[in-house]
Design a protein around this nucleic acid. Structure first.
Lengths: 149, 149
DNA sequence: ACAGGCCGTGGATGCCATCGACCTCCGGCT
DNA sequence: AGCCGGAGGTCGATGGCATCCACGGCCTGT
């Protein structure tokens, strides 16, 4: 993980579809060398995958919300996590410090769908309560931070 | 935006580095046809870009937190948003319903860095107060939701 | 019926991905 | 010091891919 690897990560973070030849030009190595480095970054888990970033509204997921989940004290967080994983509306799931054990970012098509999701969450065993905040708009999301280090 | 477009979006969302030839095989069209469709999806804004997903710890950003920002009533949200945009630690920024006008997801290397960021936020004009919650771990992030519609 | 636009296909061409052979540097051992 | 082995690089070759272009079929409105 040297400076060139970091540079490759940054380039791919900004545009995951750059060709190896183009990456090679940017970092001053040959294409096979870059190919091998990127392969190692992938298999070592530094690069987890490549995602197209899509306008959520364009695919019918215009409603974004954050839901804090407080657990019942009797239950196991792992069990609850497993249940949450089965809900496709949950885009991200963080285990948090604080009263709310989980913070979920959720993407649905309509407010009605959000309501159904909240009801379902409150009914699932292990959930004591939820608190949801609705995003009116995303100013920006998943902005890649310049990697200086 | 027909079923084939949706399929292409879903494929690229899962693996943004698929070749046009491979996409073509998956959807049953020719490579040039797919090339043209994807080009239109990009220029119409459905596809915003392609991002490598990186293990944050591997690039020295092991601390994730969510910060709610409540605005002073006298200030303009746009001005505050502009200031926030200048802080590279802020990965995502949502304008929210509720007391906290903005919800930020933040990525830093150390707790000390987080502390400095919070202090800076509280000092910026227009910010009345902040509330931060620290993520102990990310169970999953930016999971692509299967697009059935 | 027909003209025009949209969207597709197929072929051609130059670039790219990827493999293998080899080179170079460096650290550790004899 | 000299040697050995490994890591990581370059170069050249080759097969596949991206991309341009000409062409054709189908829907739609006249």
């Amino acid at each position: 993980m040297d400076a060139i690897d970091l540079r490759l990560v940054e380039l791919l973070r900004t545009n995951a579809r750059l060709s190896f030849a183009e990456l090679a030009r940017q970092v001053g190595l040959s294409a096979p060398a870059v190919h091998e480095r990127v392969g190692k970054l992938e298999s070592s888990g530094v690069i987890r995958g490549y995602r197209a970033e899509v306008d959520p509204e364009a695919v019918g997921l215009g409603v974004t919300a954050m839901i804090g989940v407080v657990e019942e004290s009797t239950t196991d967080a792992d069990d609850l996590q497993a249940v949450l994983k089965g809900l496709p509306e949950i885009e991200s799931c963080y285990f948090m410090a604080g009263v709310e054990s989980f913070l979920l970012t959720v993407r649905v098509g309509t407010i009605a769908e959000l309501e159904r999701l909240i009801v379902r969450l409150n009914r699932t065993p292990g959930v004591a309560s939820t608190r949801t905040a609705i995003a009116l708009s995303a100013k920006w999301e998943n902005r890649p931070r310049p990697l200086s280090a």
